[in-house]
Amino acid sequence: MRMIRELANPTRFMSLSGALLPWVAGLAVLLLGAGLYMVWFTAPPDYQQGETVKIMYIHVPAAWLSLFFYMIMASSALGTLVWRHPLADVSQKAAAPIGAAFTLICLVTGSLWGKPMWGTYWQWDARLTSMLVMLLIYLGILALWRAIEEPNRAARAVSILTLVGAVNVPIVKFSVDWWNTLHQPASVFRLGGPTIHSSMLVPLLVMAVAFTLMGVALHLAGMRTEILRRRVRTLTILEAERLDAQAA
């Protein structure tokens, strides 16, 4: 909690994130290289799906990041509304396009995996539909950020929408347990432990960590840019006020 309070100072955040960013990005690239090597050269084909199972190594991490970034946005929304943390809405705004992009990747790769395995690109089952709803919520949040110019007002409106949309997170996660779906049930993050053989589980986890670090690096970079954008906005307003005063 103390660290979060210390990071409330944007200048301190810029300095800390500037030092951290190259390491996180570098580690993400290294792990992504290692993960892709395992996927293409050591992971075995599935006994039923053959090589098509390779889509799993990008589909599952993308799905995980879609939920991960939504949880970041929901925590940031609480930070904005409850604690009024100065960086909470910065974090929320930076997370939205990243979460939306990974949700899109999840849907597209799932569709491309579904066609050869299920014989269809799309099925209105609970998991696929709730994931599509997730993308629509992300797009709604992005649109709301653009619709309101004043950052603080926009942050409050977006925070409320984000918290309302958070209802969809458990629906996405548990849809395969609550309803009879074409999508398979959870096979990694489940109570009884993973049901995937280690020869596939290890590359999958390496790819998941690589994607997560890549997402964190993009989020840090996005937050830094958003802080700069707000400085530009403040200084532009100051300049306009100064010019007005000179003209008067």
Partner: peptide
């Protein structure tokens, strides 16, 4: 389908970067 999945993912990630 495998190639298209990886290519589209790479394009989206490249777009984000």
């Amino acid at each position: 389908f495998i190639a298209l999945s990886y290519i589209l993912t790479a394009l989206v990630v490249a777009g984000l970067i």
